[in-house]
């Protein structure tokens, strides 16, 4: 009976701990923001239009993740799978953009060893990216499971958790967008 609610509650608690983890990384970033050690600061390396596209990708993927949940409520397996695939593709595009941004910085000689500021930047944004990657792996596993066994009770529960996770990462990204990038260029 209450296995679903217990699991979902437990997942909220987990998200809270993850929130503390990100909060610590944000404070590290805040401390090291000025530690550029003669290297570039945010203004020199961030491109807002680029990050804006990343943000749009992620927000849209949150929306499609929401759609999959609605589809699940109506028991429409195909719609669930389709919207999950779209979500995964958007997430993948986001990761690709992030990796290319990181690679560009590294090639310009502004990698994580350049300064405390860049270390904290890579750690914070990279940790978020790593979460996205984990989410993607989970999403693919779930798509396979739904295709094989349908919208069983446990698959539906996992879908709810996954979309919670995804929205949470969206929220963290909004913070990153604001604190790292927006504040970074002004």
């Amino acid at each position: 009976m209450n296995k679903d609610t217990t699991t979902i509650f437990g997942f909220w608690v987990y998200l809270m701990t993850d929130f503390v983890l990100f909060a610590s990384l944000f404070s590290v970033f805040a401390v090291l923001r000025s530690g550029t050690f003669g290297g570039p600061s945010g203004v020199d390396i961030f491109s807002l239009p680029f990050v804006f596209i990343e943000t749009c990708l992620l927000l849209t993927s949150s929306f499609t993740a929401g759609l999959s949940l609605i589809a699940a409520r109506y028991g429409k397996k195909i719609h669930v799978v389709l919207s999950l695939i779209v979500t995964a593709l958007l997430g993948l595009a986001f990761v690709a953009m992030e990796v290319s941004e990181f690679a560009k910085l590294a090639l310009e000689g502004n990698d994580w060893t350049r300064s405390g500021f860049l270390s904290s930047y890579f750690a914070l944004v990279g940790t978020h990216g790593l979460h996205i990657v984990l989410g993607l792996i989970w999403m693919i596993a779930l798509i396979v499971a739904i295709l094989r066994k349908g919208l069983t009770r446990s698959n539906t529960r996992k879908l709810v958790l996954l979309s919670l996770f995804w929205h949470f990462l969206d929220l963290i990204w909004i913070f990153i967008f604001t604190i790292v990038y927006l504040f970074g260029v002004i």
Binding site: V28, V31, L32, G35, F37, T113, G116, L118, S120, A123
Partner: peptide, 19 residues
Amino acid sequence: LDRTFGMHFFTAGGGNMMM
């Protein structure tokens, strides 16, 4: 990360060991 990948969280190079 500092030890394995040469980052600068707590070392000279913009880091802060009191953090």
